[in-house]
Amino acid sequence: MRDTAGTQAKPVRMERPRSQWRDVWDQFKTHKGALVGMTVLALLVAFVVIGPFVWHEEKLTTTQTYLNKNKPPSLTYPLGTDHLGRDFFLRMMEGGRVSIAVGLVAMTISIFIGTTVGMLSGFFKRLDGPLMRLTDLFLSLPLLPLLLVMVMLFRDALARIFGPELGTFVLIVIAIGVTSWMPAARIVRGEVLALKEREFVLAARSLGTPNRRLILRHVLPNVVSPVMVAATLDIASAIITESALSFLGLGFPPDFPTWGRLLFDGLSYMQQYPERVIWPGLAISLTVLAVNYIGDGLRDALDPRIRGR
């Protein structure tokens, strides 16, 4: 017999269950540095993505542009013009697009590879040896000659598929990603080795949790914090590596400004026009710093032991 009285009982008011991500956001909000970092990064992204559409340079011929060279900052040219008369403000926006995109994408690739390799070698004893030797192998490879070979072998092929600019982009982010995942792998492996002996992992294992869930649900969230730190550092080094590549002529076509290239171009004029080094340098530093703070905040927010305190 079914008890029908229950249907007449007053519904109990229940708090809506809080989602985990909401908790994370609440915790994240309390980190002032992270909030500032996020605002700065958002502004920088808006500057480089929306900027060039809003900011229209007047159309000048090459010779007219050249006559405008080395202008100090003014209303028409907020950051002045360079030694060929090009609007430095516009070049900063265009350069930032590439630099930020390269930094983020290359970081994603390198963290993805690094975490995967580190997780597998930390978790599965049999894979540990081969994967770590592979990591050592990559660490001992000299980066620039390797990139040189990669660029020589694949540039034309990729340029034919994606066009010269996108092709270079794909090549560069992959090249940087593939050559910079090793520190992340080592960090993750170390963390995983310690974590998998912890009680909660043992408990989960004794409940019969399959490896895949064990990794994704129990181990991965706990290694997020060191990975975040590694990731933020990776963005910085990716931006710098890209500029080194462009400087060597292995990167983007020379008429394609990036912050790194602007920085290098400015070097020879550093004495007379220090701002040409300061602006791109500042932009790179701000991006890196902002990402660092966001990483810091995320780490705290994602760590269940800190959250809610």
Partner: peptide
């Protein structure tokens, strides 16, 4: 080749050639 002066030349010459209706793709090599 890669050299700051040559890249400046490339930028200027590309500008002039674009103005007469020639598309230019630049490439610099170590």
């Amino acid at each position: 080749s890669t050299n700051p002066v040559r890249q400046d030349f490339q930028a200027l010459i590309k500008g002039w050639w674009n103005e007469v209706g020639v598309e230019v793709e630049l490439k610099n090599i170590d």
